[in-house]
Design a binder for these strands. Structure first.
Lengths: 224, 224
DNA sequence: CGACGGCCTGAGAGGCACCTGAGCGGGTTG
DNA sequence: CAACCCGCTCAGGTGCCTCTCAGGCCGTCG
């Protein structure tokens, strides 16, 4: 289990690192926001302990940036402040948990274990579903070595469905995530765009990857 | 977004329920451990707010039981105690987050949102009953490697019966949970749909999994 | 043994969920 | 400025689902 600790106070950083090492974790330490961000980008950690008050980049910013870049390693935020809004804010930057200083090592350990047990949702850089691949980085969709041109909306919809990994996505859910929670238009758009997708990624190949689950939503089935 | 609040203090329960409702959540409230556990078993909630000090079953026990039964709905534990070991303990019972009373509603809301956004960890949430399996995620039903196509209502009914895990579900209970508390039609629908289910999941395999308990309700018996 | 009540089932009507083609406005590109 | 693409709305069509109804079956009890 690899843990990254980003904390500028030398003593505290060492204490956490030693404690975690004693518990069997593999610990790396960084002392400022920049280095922490770069380390976090590697995406090879099982969890990150992140202080908010850091030289270089602020902890919230590090967290937000990682999330924006598609890194979903579980993050536990540490802060000296104790205002309640800070906590809300921390979680809103995409952190998974929050701990106010001073804290006891026992609590840190328990929370970290809980985070790791829960695990990071699998977010591969390239999404796959049978012969269909989607690269959010290059914004490219391919099926059997054929490039497929998708519009922004189509791409977002397909990406969401692929991240669901075969699970059913309800229409409301899709609207919330692809169109945004403040979308006020006709929910029928979802059906329309599902139709567009089918025309581009299924029909030319004689497949029916995008499946309708009547009364529940939509689902991707590899090469059906 | 459906949230279950299990809290025995009437005032607090009402305050939380009202607040969450105002934020657009669909809230159900239970006031003791037993009812909370049964509600939680439905598995249809996006999150559960659970007090530890409850009449009936203790909150930790409710949490642990749900986890043992394979229900991985995100759970936020509330407690009046403030000892650090309590917190560790709470997380070890399988809770996802922890909040000490008194807390501010803002914090509760933020944490709840974070929990829901994070979602239930992708555990094997597949329900089983003998050779019959039901996956609420992908919305698939199978018996002995044969896919079974179920309509939305059939699926909901079977899911409810399977979650009962062999216990008898009364017709009234089924109506409340599968058709909704406000269903005003002919209670005969239940019999009709039980018939549909039998035709799809039992008859083709020469089984009688769905059993009638005359005067009491229905029950699932593995591969009978 | 007869009557009653709970349960099963087939038929069918109505409605809803979904699909699709047409078309409009706004932004972008040549 | 015209042509095009994109995102979205709208309306019409279709097939499946849901539910009701009525009649028959069967266990239970007087």
């Amino acid at each position: 289990m690899r843990v990254l600790v980003v904390e500028d106070e030398e003593h505290l950083a060492a204490a956490i690192a030693d404690g975690l090492s004693a518990e069997g974790f593999d610990v790396d330490v960084e002392h400022n926001g920049n280095d922490g961000l770069w380390r976090g980008r590697e995406g090879s950690y099982d969890a990150i302990v992140l202080d908010v008050l850091l030289p270089g980049i602020h902890g919230y910013k590090v967290c937000r940036t990682l999330r924006d870049e598609g890194i979903w390693t579980p993050i536990l935020i540490l802060t000296a402040k104790d205002g309640e809004y800070d906590e809300a804010e921390a979680l809103d930057t995409g952190a998974d948990d929050f701990l106010s200083k001073p804290f006891s090592f026992v609590v840190l350990l328990a929370r970290l274990r809980a985070l790791i047990r829960r695990g990071a949702p699998p977010r591969p850089t390239v999404l796959e579903c049978g012969s269909l691949t989607l690269d959010p980085g290059t914004r490219r969709a391919r099926r059997a070595d054929a490039d497929i041109k998708l519009t922004a909306r189509e791409f977002a919809l397909l990406e969401y469905l692929m991240r669901k990994d075969g699970n059913v996505a309800s229409k409301a859910e899709i609207l919330d995530h692809v169109w945004g929670i403040d979308f006020a238009g006709d929910p029928n758009v979802v059906e329309v765009y599902v139709g567009y997708l089918r025309k581009k990624i299924d029909a030319p190949f004689g497949l029916e990857t995008v499946q309708t689950v009547r009364g529940a939503g939509y689902r991707l089935e590899p090469d059906a």
